[in-house]
Design a protein around this nucleic acid. Structure first.
Length: 886
DNA sequence: GCGTTCACG
DNA sequence: ACGTACGTGAACGCG
């Protein structure tokens, strides 16, 4: 018999977490079920992953606890539990009953106390204990045997806390957690602590003195007179707070650990309850997973399918299958990057028959090649762009994509970072699929498995892909994402594929020359820096550099990082007046960056055709923007002249062609003016030549002639800050001014543009109601952290709620323009080519005779891509290189 | 593999 | 008191 293991769940805490982490779902009878749903998800997860032998869910019972006897105001200021949640506790208990999980609450005690009592009992019996909660207070119970699973975001993601990880995080032992709370207090429980002491001060004091009692006893040793006074004045309060935070571990229970043995899950009953509550995906999970052996579900629980390997001899037998209305197609490649990969093979499925076609057979099966290239044959694919690029290298065309599962999954949740087919399958269907990493191995160990295993895996891919379409289509419809998927993202992927295949011509010789100039500069700077420092060291090592600057040369430490001194540019700029070495280091860094990332980095990427083929990622950025990798051509230097010269090497690929660059002028601020509807900001865009100057005039209330360059710079920073979801701190950092001043700037801005202020308030409120924000074209981003209790996380989510509709709408606009420009270019049989997109600009190469028509066309389509309440403006530039097109 | 730094919009 | 400007990708040092 393996070791016993008990799971103790903080019922109220998890219910709250689930309630705030999920959008306010209702089932068909109008009943709110989000908290119960989240709770059930968490239960299934811990049952599957932890396989407990014993289990209990503890609830708070009644309002008054023994803590109120000595502190009336305990939990006094807490908001009333929302009605939408209170109604869900019976549902949660229904779920627990169905799973035969015990739950318990006792008047006068909190769930924490019950958990504490049981964890001590379990400890005595040498049972392993896992506490599940969203409340850090429970850390005090942690021992070698007892760990806490702390929900992180939502309810299913959690961190496990052990004595070691608490030590790492706080530098405290678990029992010192109550001392910390005694000092800090906890506003949510109305525990006062010592005013003016937060986590930082609290931790510092505890690291020095160990406990609240010790701190009080040694008050005279504390740093700072203010602090000493506070501790003296509020010592009673601190002791009281500590007492309130201490979990009571002797609750009189009328049952023992043995009574909490967890029987295996009775599948039928659970399914019935989940069906009744309309937890559809959970029903599926139970069906395939948990089984009657409770917790026996395993990783090997994969979807195995029947498959056929197509050979040259047998390929004729399968021609009929290709006549199906719709088939899924998986194009298997050796590398992530399709420009560098080789074809392993194809697999196709109609949901019943699953074929694997090795690469050598593909090229010989003519009917298959016809099917691939036929726009009448509908295909369900995963990452059509990648597939199309790889096939086109073999001269095989791919048409007729009716659904791209990758793009659909991205739109359904653009924040999801893992969008491999295997992840998408587990997220959206009842199946599981081994990840490529499991099948192929990773790193140096990566290799193709033996024939049968490979065929089985690839046939599975095609099979699950076929199933996913019917799963995702309704989800896409329901979330109003159909137009965005079918009319924007899917057509765009074709355009991006073309751009990637075309690539950008790079003048390798000139890159070489630029490199040697930079190399000389770098060597000169290195010598000068060593000379001033009086010693050789690795300037690229922040650690060694810090030692030179701060230990050897004694410069003041303005900022620290987790690992030591900060030597970032903003710090160095402040130190520059104090020592001649600093400017040289800044320059060294700048040149070093250019040399390693841009000269050396780009050189490696030039292909046999003299071009660079970047890879646009369409499913990375949560806002809807594109990203560019291997290499990143969206961050080629421009701000400083020395770096800007890199752009000279990007040239047209043919004689008598030019580079045309078309960029949106202030697109994000225009979007803000549109969605906020602020009259002054709109007026500014209808009239003003320069928005930052106009903002400076409005905010400082001066005439245009009176605007100084400082005023304009500050107005510009405020404009940027507004788009990012402003905070006084952020602006103060950016402008290097006190936070107070930054706050005044923001206030004046909001007085000037009250519509913007209204928008910022409304969008956050709306987001908290819906659980997500949307863009002009209905792109969606969920923001579960809006409900976080942690201030920093919540604030971050609030700024994201302000920024995403702006950045995301700008992304929608340029994407739409790209699709339309491409369509017209094809229609008009233009020779010109779209090469790059850099968020608000498009780069083309254009034969001189098309310059006029392309300029008109591009401007027109970009400016008219969508209709806003204010005009969109596009600037055009032409040159012999990207550098000159400015 | 992670943290720091820095390139872009 | 808290700890941040929004969104990315690449190179490097270090353990």
């Amino acid at each position: 018999m393996s070791k016993k293991k008990i799971i103790l769940i903080d019922g109220n805490s998890i219910a709250f977490r689930a309630f705030y982490a999920l959008p306010l779902l209702t089932n068909s009878s109008g009943l709110y079920t989000n908290a119960a749903y989240g709770f059930a998800m968490m239960l299934l997860k811990v049952l599957e992953e932890e396989k407990p032998t014993h289990m209990l869910v503890a609830f708070d019972e009644g309002k008054d606890t023994f803590r109120h006897e000595f502190y009336q105001e305990y939990k006094g200021k807490r908001d009333k539990t929302p009605g939408e949640l209170t109604g869900q506790f019976p549902l949660i208990k229904e779920v627990l009953d169905a799973c035969q999980i015990r739950y318990y609450g006792l008047a006068g005690y909190e769930a924490d106390d019950i958990i504490g009592t049981l964890s001590k009992m379990a400890d005595a019996e040498e049972m392993e204990t896992l506490i599940v909660s969203g409340d850090k207070d429970l850390f005090q119970l942690v021992t070698d045997q007892v760990s806490v699973l702390m929900t992180r975001k939502g309810v299913t993601e959690a961190d496990r806390y052990t004595p070691e990880s608490i030590q790492d995080r706080y530098g405290l032992t678990p029992s010192q957690i109550i001392d910390l709370k005694g000092l800090m207090g906890d506003p949510s429980d109305n525990i006062p602590g010592i005013p003016g002491v937060g986590e930082k001060t609290g931790l510092k004091l505890l690291h020095q003195h160990g406990s609240v009692e010790e701190i009080i006893a040694r008050v005279a040793d504390l740093p700072g007179k203010k602090l000493q006074e506070k501790v003296t004045e509020f010592q009673e309060q601190a002791l009281l707070s500590k007492r309130l935070a201490t979990i009571y571990c002797e609750v009189p229970l009328d049952f023992g650990i043995d009574d909490l043995e967890q029987p295996s899950i009775h599948t039928e009953e659970v399914i019935e309850t989940f069906k009744k509550l309309e937890f559809k995906t959970l029903v599926d999970r139970i069906k395939k997973g948990l089984g009657d052996q409770s917790g026996q579900a395993s990783e090997s629980d994969q979807t195995l399918v029947e498959y056929q390997i197509v050979s040259e001899d047998s390929m004729g037998d399968w021609n009929d299958l290709l006549q199906s209305d719709s088939l899924s197609l998986n194009v298997e490649l050796s590398e992530e990057n399709p420009h560098r990969s080789e074809l392993v093979g194809l697999s196709i499925s109609d949901g019943i028959t699953n074929l694997y076609i090795p690469a050598n057979v593909v090229s010989k099966w003519n009917k298959l090649l016809d099917w691939l290239g036929s726009s009448n044959s509908q295909k369900v694919v995963f990452d059509g762009k990648r597939s199309e690029i790889a096939l086109s290298k073999l001269g095989i065309s791919l048409e007729g994509i009716e659904m791209d599962i990758l793009l659909a999954a991205y739109l359904l949740n653009p924040s999801e970072t893992s969008l491999s087919l295997s992840d998408v399958v587990s997220q959206h269907s009842e199946y599981t699929l081994a990840s490529d990493e499991e099948v192929y191995g990773k790193g140096a160990k990566r290799k193709l498995p033996t024939g049968e295993n490979l065929a089985q895996h690839l046939a599975q891919k095609a099979y699950v892909l076929y199933g996913l379409q019917s799963q995702l289509k309704p989800e896409i419809e329901r979330t109003d994402l159909a137009n965005l998927l079918y009319d924007l993202e899917m057509p765009l992927s074709r355009v991006l594929g073309k751009m990637e295949k075309l690539g950008v011509k790079v003048d390798g010789e000139q890159l070489e020359q630029l490199g040697s100039v930079l190399q000389e500069t770098l060597e000169r700077l290195t010598i000068e820096i060593y000379d001033i420092a009086g010693t050789d060291f690795n300037i690229n090592s922040p650690k060694q550099l810090g030692e030179i600057l701060f230990d050897k040369l004694g410069l003041p430490v303005l900022k620290k990082t987790k690992t030591g001194y900060s030597t970032s540019a903003d710090v160095l700029e402040k130190l520059a007046p104090q020592h001649e070495i600093v400017d040289k280091i800044l320059h060294y860094r700048q040149v070093g960056k250019l040399l390693s990332t841009y000269v050396e980095g780009l050189k490696k990427e030039i292909g046999a055709d003299g071009k660079i083929h970047t890879h646009f990622n369409q499913t990375i950025a949560a806002t809807g923007r594109l990203s560019s990798v291997e290499p990143n051509l969206q961050n080629i230097p421009i701000r400083l002249e020395e770096g800007r010269k890199i752009r000279q090497v990007f040239v047209p690929s043919e004689e008598n062609w030019m580079i045309l660059a078309a960029d949106y002028s202030q697109v994000e601020l225009r979007v803000l003016a549109h969605i906020s509807g602020d009259p002054s900001l709109q007026k500014a865009f209808r009239e003003a030549k320069d928005i930052h100057t106009q903002t400076a005039m409005d905010v400082f209330q001066v005439k245009e002639e009176e605007i100084t360059s400082l005023m304009r710079r500050q107005a510009k920073a405020v404009n940027f800050g507004i788009v990012y979801g402003i905070s006084p701190f952020g602006l103060s950092q950016n402008l290097n001014i006190p936070q107070k001043e930054a706050k005044q700037f923001i206030e004046r801005y909001f007085e000037t543009y009250p519509g913007v202020k209204q928008y910022m308030n409304d969008i956050v409120a709306q987001a908290k109601q819906d659980g997500y924000v949307t863009t002009l074209l209905q792109r969606r981003r969920y923001l579960p952290e809006l409900y976080a209790t942690d201030f920093a996380r919540r604030s971050f989510a609030e700024r994201t709620a302000m920024n995403t509709p702006i950045q995301g709408t700008a992304a929608d606009i340029i994407k739409k323009a790209m699709v339309e420009i491409d369509r017209v270019m094809v229609e008009k049989k233009m020779k010109s080519r779209m090469l790059l997109q850099v968020h608000d600009e498009l780069i083309f190469e254009v034969p001189v005779e098309e310059l006029g028509s392309m300029g008109d066309l591009v401007r027109e389509m970009m400016e008219q891509a969508v209709e806003l309440s204010i005009p969109l403006v596009v600037d055009l530039n032409i040159g012999q290189s990207w550098y000159e097109a400015k």
